[in-house]
Amino acid sequence: MSPRALLLFELDGRKMAARVEGIRRIAAGGGTDAPWTLQSPLGAPRSAAHGLVVETPGGEKVLGVDRVLGQRTITAAEVLPVPPIAAEVLGLKGLCGLVPLDGELTLLLDVSVLFSELETWAADRRLEGEA
């Protein structure tokens, strides 16, 4: 099985992971001109001390996170699929699996895909607010 490098980070008090190859660089708080996203289905960072910079069709975007925890290498077989019922209920394609790390399941995210879903998610939230 080919190894996969994961970037571990904390957002809204929770440990999450993203594939390193999907992250262009890590920005310090406010240290980039690209727009920062501080509200997403993942929650909101408490400090946004770091940002994960990714390339999207609309240019670079930054997901604010509380802190970057480091890197971890796993095998592809260690990535477990999101249960079908959960995938369907959430409809969140940016959540691409779960990885057992240090005795707990860690969310594995595709941050670029997550950005593609943000507009719809924000619109849904606005509708909920109006309802």
Binding site: L80, A86, L95
Partner: peptide
Amino acid sequence: GPLTRLPAAPSFLPGVFHHRGEVLAAL
């Protein structure tokens, strides 16, 4: 065991857990 919360999950889906090599949703 411990449940892992999923982002933006509705209240009836409190989380998922690891069981015998697969992840199962708890409803």
